[in-house]
């Protein structure tokens, strides 16, 4: 039954744009596109997060991916296909530059989180500082071509983006599944528990850590490119820095970071919640929606520590399949 879950879900989602929803259609599609893109990004984050590499700086990868693509298009008219590829390569290089010393010097746990947080802030501040071409904190809009164009990846019809985001999300699930089934998973779990022991049985610790970080960062950059193309506007506060990095982590941890659909459940829940609150409050009581959102996040984290999918799976199955094999002990920091 589990095997059938993803194809059935994908088929249902693929049919969604065909459902008549009257005037709500554009808005529902918009929310679903966002959910799919952020699920993909959350899945990319969880590739690292599940092995105890808790990054608080994925905003850096997201922002670099999105900004590089948009700027290459705006200034030199590079197609997002090409610009996006360049952006992903740049992001992969950044990730490798961060990951290499982190694994060489055994920067783990809190320290790893704070180093990545610093990287995220550096990217955000660089975007703000280079305001001549990035637009600073006002952000920058994607130059419109005026008509539908596959070359420019701009479409007036939301359905195109919807199917694109769906395909992206499925591809993300496939990567997640491949990693889950690979030798790398066992190796990374061993490293997450005890690096020295893992190294002593012949696991190349540095190589595995860099590989998983680069993979996670590159996919995050792809998500950033997709998001920028869809929204057609990039802003340092929504795409880089600590705020967005925390939101990614929140969605994943809420959903459950050790399961295939956890990030998607988390993203769907957090986005649906914030959209619902936004509509419920409208322009009255500015800030109240976000206040309730933050409050609920704290409550969820306290009462559902294994995430929604993790906790539900635990209830149904006695926790045999879901959850970390052993709680990753990320508290040990180098003395």
């Amino acid at each position: 039954m589990r095997r059938a879950l993803v194809p059935v879900l994908a088929a249902l989602l693929a049919l969604a744009p065909l459902v008549p929803m009257a005037g709500m259609k554009q808005y529902v599609l918009h929310v679903m596109i966002q959910i799919l893109i952020w699920s993909f990004i959350g899945g990319a984050w969880s590739l690292m997060g599940r092995f105890g590499l808790v990054s608080l700086g994925h905003g850096a990868f997201l922002g670099l991916g999105a900004y590089a693509t948009v700027l290459l298009w705006n200034f030199w008219a590079w197609s997002p296909w090409l610009g996006g590829a360049v952006a992903v390569v740049l992001t992969a290089i950044l990730a490798a530059v961060v990951a290499y010393p982190c694994s060489r010097f055994q920067v783990v746990g809190h320290y790893f989180g704070l180093v990545t947080l610093a990287v995220g802030e550096v990217i955000r501040l660089l975007i703000i500082a280079e305001r001549d071409w990035t637009g600073g904190s006002l952000g920058v809009s994607l130059k419109p071509v005026g008509s539908d164009s596959l070359w420019a990846l701009q479409f007036a019809d939301k359905r195109v983006f919807y199917y694109g985001a769906l395909a992206l999300w499925l591809a993300g699930l496939w990567v997640w599944h491949r990693v889950d089934r690979s030798m790398a998973r066992s190796a990374m779990e061993a490293i997450g528990e005890d690096e020295t022991a893992a190294a002593s049985v012949g696991i190349h610790v540095t190589r595995f850590k860099i590989a998983i970080t680069v993979l996670s960062a590159a996919l995050t950059a792809v998500g950033g490119v997709a998001y920028a193309q869809y929204i057609a506007y990039v802003n340092p506060d929504t795409l880089a820095g600590i705020g967005v990095s925390l939101r990614i982590v929140f969605a994943v941890v809420l959903g459950g970071m050790y399961s295939l659909l956890g990030p998607a459940v988390g993203a769907a829940l957090t986005i649906a919640l914030s959209e619902w609150l936004r509509i419920a409050f409208g322009l009255k009581l500015i800030g109240m929606a976000e206040t309730i959102y933050g409050f609920l996040l704290v409550v969820f984290i306290i009462f559902l520590p294994a995430g929604i999918v993790g906790s539900a799976g635990g209830l149904l199955r006695g926790g045999a399949r879901y959850g970390p094999p052993h709680p990753p002990d990320a508290r040990r920091a180098p003395a």
Binding site: V54, V249, V253, G294, L297
Partner: peptide, 23 residues
């Protein structure tokens, strides 16, 4: 709980305080 949950709980507090102050 896992360290990440502890960190995120205070992260949620951050969103809460920022928005509540805005409100």
């Amino acid at each position: 709980s896992a360290p990440i949950n502890q960190l995120l709980a205070t992260g949620g507090l951050l969103f809460f305080l920022q928005s509540f102050a805005t409100f």
